[in-house]
Design a protein around this nucleic acid. Structure first.
Lengths: 157, 157
DNA sequence: AAGAATGATACCATTAACATATCATAAGGG
DNA sequence: CCCTTATGATATGTTAATGGTATCATTCTT
């Protein structure tokens, strides 16, 4: 029942740093020591972000990662989706055949609505807004930028 | 990252049935077959609710459970708290010493605010609102009733 | 006294979360 | 050219949360 998992948390820290140091290519080793994040773990996270076109990577000596997108185009919800797949607060419970009235289950409906509202806020939160300290927007504001085509997440393999 | 776990789901189904059949004492066996919920599992759930004064239980032949509170006084958030303890979407991640700037971490702040909004909606959702099909309230409405003293949840033992 | 119910609690299985290890490949500097 | 430093990909291990079962004790009704 935790909204933000460690993957997302670590990703945010790394991305915020990169947003504050654009152009610079940062290695996992650097970031790992800087934020006291387990090296291999952070590495897998950044590799995922690279696969999802959020980061750009370069190999070899002097290699590392840098942002591929503008910080205002990297949404908190994007990161969560990279690690968990499409956000769905009602996932397992209702998907199971156990629930007889899938279609008009009142609990399902309610939770879906709550999820929808939370999603609006998660989409309003970007790396740029986190860096600037502006508390993003209250629900209702439209997040900037076009939403690109859906991509596979790191679990579904 | 799932808001509603099976405990909560099963609890809601059982409580909704009881709300529609007040005065009636229902046994676990009855509810279990009625909703195709594993008997022992449901039993543990209802026992928890009884310990938390949401249900009233009677033992022996003809015994079972019935509501101790009016359905409008049973909040969805109450049920979630019974099974998970105080709701905290930012639990582990930020609690860990790993985060250097606990106090003014921008991600933490943002997620706290999102949590707060979700909580308002979870508190506006009651067994009564679920039964009636009225989609509870939009964020901002005050949930009815006084909040009783804090109780231990089922995990912290 | 028998049977049907809950109270309490111990136990087990599965899955998700968190983390590490390793082999392959690529780039740069001596 | 080879050594070092980096990522790409992926296999494996560990711990905690979730979902579920079993059992003994107690209580109430008949």
């Amino acid at each position: 029942m935790n909204l933000i998992t460690r993957d997302t948390d670590y990703a945010v820290r790394a991305l915020c740093f990169m947003a504050q140091n654009p152009e610079r290519v940062v290695s996992v080793t650097d970031l790992g020591t800087r934020f006291a994040i387990p090296r291999q773990y952070l590495r897998r996270i950044l590799q995922s972000l690279a696969r999802h076109n959020i980061l750009e990577s370069s190999r070899g000596q002097g290699g590392g990662f840098k942002l591929r997108k503008h910080p205002s185009r990297i949404l908190l919800s994007d990161l969560m989706e990279v690690f968990h797949g499409a956000l769905d607060f009602t996932r397992c419970v209702f998907r199971s055949a156990a629930c007889p009235n899938q279609a008009n289950c009142p609990l399902r409906k309610t939770v879906k609505q709550i999820e929808k509202n939370a999603l609006i806020e998660l989409r309003a939160t970007t790396i740029a807004s986190l860096v600037s300290g502006h508390p993003a927007a209250k629900a209702g504001r439209k997040a900037p930028g076009k939403r690109p085509a859906k991509q596979r997440n790191e679990k579904s393999r």
